[in-house]
Design a protein around this nucleic acid. Structure first.
Lengths: 346, 346
DNA sequence: TTGTATGCGTTATCAT
DNA sequence: ATGATAACGCATACAA
């Protein structure tokens, strides 16, 4: 654990000279600089982070607060890793907050100056962490779009636009009846906001186009039955000609299996569009066009904003960045079948 | 950002009194203590972590270095979350290291005194991070069992014992021919050590018992074909009567599907034992007995050792804790079928 | 029981 | 171009 004084002694200079060699804030003779750098290298000197912070420097540490659910299920999303990677790319280390009381955790690491800024993940509409952002004393950015966001910045996909866009696309292709597929969990769990945002916007836009949105009920035990969904929403003359899926890829896959067995061809008999998902990471039974999550872009943006605030002291409170939804065409969207429906109603 | 002086002023006492109230290292009159605590509460005072560390305190920060593969795939294992949770439970925050050069990352956070200790995850046999542990200047514990471990502690399951135990169990049940199922990835990827350890030990023990271990070749493109495996290893009079799986649960599941189609009943026609897996977290086609990974226990132990070293300055270098493998009976092991094999060789 | 002074390792200010 | 020194916020030895 060599300190700056050890380096100074080894190089035969004063401590301040060593500091200046490192910071480059004043001119140093090449000779001296060489000596010092050599000593630093030999001793493996790395400045003490705490002492530096005492002198007003930042720690280059960003705290990440994932949602409780993710922590419990040990299934940290792509958002988590992307945030970490982007932070690292910006020269910051990542402090992972996993405590029961997230707000308390955040206050602790910000007030103690351990972290220079905070990223909120898995943000819900009614999010206590975002609501308390004023008390952190450090810049805070939410990946998500909570109702109370006056004191933090928000970065998210524009799910409202995504809903409109989905309706628009299907309408343009002549679809009149669309089935909406959702996972179980989304109904039981505290609403993640964007699920509802998307759904409401989809329904509203569909309404304007004169399109019908159909949803299948869950089985009584709250689980999802793909057979039920298909027979409820797709069969018969009043059956949907397109499926918009907001469901977990595994669930979507189940339904695709049922569709295949029932001899529905995609996109000839039925169009399928997956929204708010990341199908690229999973093997799907059919390639499905989607409007995906974009963790990398969102996290890059979030970290960018945060670092801007940390390093240039820019006030980012209240900033809201909503990304325009992306569309990836994988060929599962086609024009609505004219009259006779496909499928085998046995 | 109230400091200790602000609190002192608000409470009408000196700074040291505030400090002592917090540390409890000398007796304070109830009256004074009350005043101070109230002021602390009102101002939301939290001591500056850096200043504390300057005075020789620790930071209560543990750095976690996951393997590169996990970082690349944006997926963090159960070990990661368990380490984080156990650390938190021990009163430590977790610093996530995701840099390209893990050793450099670790040196940076230890030498700068940002982290008080390190946990290595996804440790390979030939692990640079473990080999360089002497240079960290802070205690280091590996979850895994690298070859070079003189300067760090190691916590792992005893995979050698697991291999012996697996052989023993099957031998006790009268099995003479055992098929070993492995995932593709394990063959191509830099060896994680325990895969080989288990396999070698299984084979050695089987040898001693006069048991035959059969492995199926991969298809030429390096992928796994469950049909191939089943027809290679299970059919015919010389077919295996038991399967030991070291494969990913998804792969195991595929093979279970093939077994079912081929009318192999478990455990009547064939016994199945999964090793080094965490089947509980995935839905399996059949319930399979296993000798599982035990992330929680391992991580608890690892954090325990690390904290012991950090707080009581115990030298933990070279410590190796190997856990005895657990066996979870889910009914997929039975006695070897006497003569006529099950299965439908069409 | 409480207050004052010192030092942790570093950087910025002042001096040379 | 370089060196000496004060200050950052806190915990502790020392004084009272």
């Amino acid at each position: 654990m060599a300190g700056i004084k050890d380096v100074a002694k080894a190089a035969g200079v004063s401590a301040s000279t060593v500091s200046y060699v490192l910071s480059g804030k004043r001119s140093i003779s090449t000779k001296t600089s060489d000596k010092v750098l050599r000593a630093i290298d030999e001793l493996g000197y790395i400045p003490d982070a705490s002492a530096q912070k005492m002198r007003g420097k930042i720690n280059h540490v960003i705290a990440i607060a994932p949602g409780r659910r993710e922590v419990k299920h040990s299934s940290l999303s792509a958002y988590f890793m992307q945030t970490a990677l982007q932070a690292k790319a910006a020269g910051y280390d990542v402090l992972l907050l996993t405590g029961e009381d997230a707000v308390e955790d955040i206050k602790r690491v910000t007030h103690s100056n351990l972290a220079d800024g905070i990223v909120l993940l898995d943000v819900e509409q009614d999010d206590a962490r975002a609501a308390m952002a004023a008390e952190y004393g450090k810049p805070c950015v939410a990946i998500g779009y909570p109702d109370q966001h006056d004191d933090c910045a928000c970065v998210d996909i524009n799910f409202e636009a995504m809903g409109r866009l989905a309706a628009q696309k299907l309408h343009d292709l002549g679809h009149k009846r669309v089935a909406l597929l959702r996972s179980v969990e989304n109904l039981n769990e505290p609403v993640s906001g964007y699920f509802l945002l998307f759904r409401d916007s989809l329904i509203a836009a569909a309404d304007k186009f004169g399109m019908t949105i159909m949803e299948s009920a869950l089985t009584e035990d709250g689980s999802f039955d793909p057979n039920q969904f298909v027979s409820d929403c797709l069969f018969g003359d009043a059956g949907a000609t397109a499926v918009v899926s907001q469901a977990d890829p595994a669930v979507l896959n189940l339904m695709l299996g049922v569709l295949r067995v029932a001899k529905f061809a995609i996109p000839d008999n039925v169009s399928v569009l997956s929204c708010g998902t990341l199908l690229a990471s999973q093997p799907m039974k059919e390639s499905i066009s989607e409007m995906p999550m974009t963790p990398k872009e969102l996290c890059r943006q979030a970290i960018g904003i945060l670092v801007e605030s940390i390093e240039r002291h820019r006030d980012i409170r209240g900033i809201v960045k909503l990304f325009r939804p992306k569309f990836i065409d994988r060929g599962s969207l086609g024009p609505a079948p004219i009259s006779t429906r496909g499928g085998d109603a046995t």
